[in-house]
């Protein structure tokens, strides 16, 4: 109780003294900025977002605080951002699942026209993940097994229509494989089942390999190898033309005043390109990636179209 109050007071006092209360008063932001996050605390995206908060707070001159609003595969968080007042005091950290995957697998109560894009914050490759004691030494081993035992090739995901499900199905499709999808209840359940040998493989952000003790990566889905998994071959070097990064960025409800938008954009740019943020991301095995609002918006559209093609082919698009 005291701890929480003290911390808030401390943040307020620190930011006030560091930047001088008087001259920031007149312009945005005059009070803390809320960041709606469609995941539970402790999730990887949550950690990444918290990693940028410090820098962002400094750039804004006001504390930025995370509000966790999970639910309905991140849809509820996006709706909360859409319905917020477009004054810049409520923005959202929305991710690939929210903006590109789920809109293609079911009908959602928002479109890209409901948001003002501020900037992209991170982009990290995903990886093909198997149990640490799995007999597969390489992606080719796994493909060979899947080709011989199509019925036994179970791949997991934290739920139907999730990023992990769609991306892995697409990767298998490229190899003319099908496999059987086993949707479990959340990521911990997936890695537990993998540890028991019930699931053969799954696809998840490469950072997972660092978070869970009992798994290893067979292939990183990127052009080149990544720094924190130097021994794992990339899909680029195996001539597999498939990348399925996890990414996320800041969005605001449509209709931000120009000055407010400019302030948020410049603060975001400074924060994402800062050294402090880069160091924080190294701990979570995630890679900072800056795109301006309009570039980010175009990127999101491209990704959404890419997933649309996949879900159409898999027959997962809503009727």
């Amino acid at each position: 109780m005291l701890g929480s109050v003290f911390a808030r007071l401390a943040v307020l006092v620190l930011s006030a003294t560091a930047f001088g209360i008087s001259d920031v008063r007149a312009e945005f932001p005059e009070r803390p900025v809320q960041i709606i996050l469609p995941y539970d605390a402790g999730a990887n995206v949550d950690l990444v977002t918290r990693g940028i908060l410090n820098v962002l707070s400094k750039e804004l001159g006001q504390p930025a605080v995370v509000v966790n609003q999970p639910g309905a595969s991140t849809v509820l968080g996006a709706v909360a951002v859409k319905n917020a007042r477009p004054d810049g005091y409520t923005i959202g950290m929305l991710v690939v699942t929210t903006l590109a995957v789920v809109p293609n697998t079911r009908s959602v109560p928002f479109t890209s026209a409901d948001f003002d894009y501020i900037c992209q914050v991170y982009e990290a490759p995903s990886a093909v993940i198997v149990a640490k004691d799995s007999p597969f030494k390489s992606f080719a081993d796994m493909v060979a097994f899947a080709r011989e035992n199509p019925a036994k090739f179970l791949y997991g995901s934290p739920g139907p229509g999730s990023f992990n499900h769609i991306s892995f199905a697409a990767l298998l499709g490229m190899q003319n494989l099908k496999g059987t999808h086993a949707p479990l209840s959340g990521n911990p359940a997936v890695y537990q089942a993998m540890g028991r040998g019930e699931l053969v493989a799954n696809l998840d952000s490469a950072a997972t390999v660092r978070n869970y003790d009992n798994v290893k990566a067979l292939m990183v889905l990127s052009k080149e190898r990544i720094k924190f998994l130097p021994d794992v071959p990339s899909s680029g070097e195996l001539n597999i033309n498939f990348e399925s990064p996890v990414w996320g960025g800041f969005l605001a409800p449509k209709g931000l005043p120009t000055a407010v938008k400019a302030k948020l954009e410049s603060a975001c740019k400074a924060a994402v390109t800062s050294d402090e943020y880069a160091r924080a991301m190294e701990r979570f095995s995630t890679i900072p990636k800056y795109r301006t609002g309009s570039d980010f918006s175009a990127y999101v559209e491209a990704e959404r179209a890419r997933y649309r093609k996949i879900t159409d082919e898999l027959g997962l698009s809503p009727k």
């Binding site: 539970d40 402790g42 999730a43 949550d46």
Partner: peptide, 12 residues
Amino acid sequence: VVMAIMMGALLI
């Protein structure tokens, strides 16, 4: 969920 938050604190 509670344990996931604890795990987050450890990972951080």
